[in-house]
Amino acid sequence: IRKILISVAGRGLCEEMFNMLAEIPAIQQASVTVLHVVPPQVTAEAMSAKLEEGGKILADAVKSLKVDPSRITPRLKQGDPKNIVTQVADEEETDLIIMGSRGLTRLEAILENSVSQYVFQLSSRPMLLVKDDVYVKQIRRIMVAMDKSDAAQNSFELALSLVRDMKNVQLYLARVIPEAKPDQVMSNAEADPVLAEAAAKAKRLGVSYRCVLSGGKPGPGICELAEDKNIDLLILGS
């Protein structure tokens, strides 16, 4: 991850999240664009006020990021936030977009013109979504959702590249098997072929890991495992 785009709205959550990630040596070397977008306003006065406020939001964000200031580029832009975020990410060939999300369901997101939903659908770049109501914690437990797909393999590789240089971090390799019942499989995690293969690779790289297996619907299963294990960052392919 060499280029990170942080879309800031003034609440400070994405900045906090970045600072947790910044403990990862690989992230410290990244260049960071901090973007604030001012949506169209009805009057010139309103626009001027919003731009001024935006400048302050950017200045505060730059101050709060724990990274060498020479690596930060602040950008204040006008327009429709969902288009601008996607556009800037493409322009700068961003490797990771960090942005907030309200945790709306798909329908609510469409009705409410959700920026993160739109960027998720239109951009093919990795995204780190920080929901309004989550508590951003120091990263000690990272979970990666595994299955047989290439997408899961990619996310596993990304997880490995993040945790390799980190001390005191545990990588949870998680799989939910749709055909199984949770209590049938939970004690057999190490024997699962998908997890066993990933575990072998993690072991070779000296990464501290644990395997967790469950059954049932993958979505709720993954969320439940993440909550049970008190996970600080969940990685999954999409």
Partner: peptide, 18 residues
């Protein structure tokens, strides 16, 4: 999809790799 569900419901920050 799985990523749709998880990014809405998960109780922690979610990194979607592509």
């Amino acid at each position: 999809s799985l990523s749709d569900y998880v990014r809405v419901k998960a109780n922690c920050p979610v990194l979607l790799s592509r």
